[in-house]
């Protein structure tokens, strides 16, 4: 089970430009739990977009995500805002955790900018359950603050809200200079804001491993470019489409390749390369082996050029 079919059970516009969706299993059963700060990759009208989960991840019966409409984006958020209706079913991958709270932190300093508040809301829910000490700074444009009520409720009103950039920067610097030993910093928001917060922390002596951020980008998944692989033993050529691994393409065409983890770790699916340049994406081969270019891990690696030849 790596994909989920999710029914849109509710959709609201809490503030201009943001649509919040509630998703549930069509048969009403419990959904897979998720670590605070996780995101859900949803198929949005032909594209895959990742959205931070804002609901409680403990044995959940529903998921909620908040989607900011990006008019000049790749179209996924427009589809969520304009096309998707309550009662429809969307396909999503299992929630993925890449921005978790640090359990051992003495205190959690959470900084959110704009729609970057979404994973912070999820962190705050867990912090409440486990009675973790938090301090929240949330900066947003006047009238455009998503989840302001949630943030205030989850911090008993203690969260500091900022709508003035200069005031936020001054307050942030003071806050970063006066945290107990053992504090961890989490920041999510626009790239320039993240850079500013992290640079300020570094300037105040914060080590890297105390700093955690989640950046917005283009695509969570990298399906890779399509390429052709020629099997020199038989002379046949197999097309490897974008989003399909070389290993899957070989298996589909009847070539058995020993494999275990299918994540580029175990080393089982190493295959020799006779011609072409591999695009290595594994953790198994050493830098020297990768540079040699005469073998690759079929489960994750691809071709840097339009074609590869393998002696299989």
């Amino acid at each position: 089970m790596t994909t989920l079919e999710l029914l849109v059970t509710a959709a609201v516009h809490p503030v201009p430009g943001i649509r919040s969706l509630t998703l549930a299993a069509p048969d009403g059963r419990d959904l897979p739990g998720f670590v605070p700060g996780s995101h859900l990759v949803i198929e949005c009208g032909g594209r895959s977009n990742a959205y931070s989960l804002t609901s409680d991840g403990t044995a959940p019966t529903s998921y909620t995500v908040s989607v900011l409409e990006v008019p000049d984006g790749s179209g996924g958020s427009r589809w969520v805002h304009r096309e998707l209706r309550v009662g429809e079913v969307v396909t999503a991958r299992l929630p993925r955790s890449l921005f978790p709270p640090v359990a051992r932190a003495a205190k959690h300093l959470l900084v959110a900018g704009g729609i970057g508040v979404t994973p912070i809301v999820s962190h705050l829910r867990a912090a409440r359950t486990w009675r973790r000490e938090t301090e929240v700074h949330y900066v947003f444009r006047e009238g455009r603050g998503a989840h302001v009520d949630d943030v205030l409720a989850l911090t008993d009103g203690a969260a500091e809200l900022h709508t003035d950039r200069a005031e936020f920067c001054a307050r942030l610097e003071k806050a970063l200079a006066d945290q107990p030993l053992g504090t961890h910093l989490y920041v999510c928001g626009p790239a320039a804001m993240i850079d500013h917060v992290l640079d300020t922390a570094r300037g105040l002596g914060w080590p890297e491993s105390r700093l955690h951020c989640e950046r917005f980008g283009l695509d969570a998944l990298d399906p890779g470019d399509p390429f052709d692989v020629t099997l020199t033993a038989t002379g046949t050529t197999v097309r490897v489409p974008s989003g399909t691994s070389l290993l899957e393409a070989l298996e589909t065409s009847g070539v058995d390749v020993p494999n275990l983890c299918r994540q580029g770790v175990c080393g089982e699916c190493r295959i020799p390369v006779a011609a072409g340049t591999p695009l290595h994406r594994d953790l198994f081969l050493t830098e020297e082996e990768k540079a040699a270019g005469d073998a690759l891990m079929a489960c994750v690696s691809r071709s840097a050029g339009p074609s590869l030849e393998v002696p299989l």
Partner: peptide, 11 residues
Amino acid sequence: MTLTEPVTEVV
């Protein structure tokens, strides 16, 4: 808006 995986150092 979408998210990318953070860049992790594999040292």
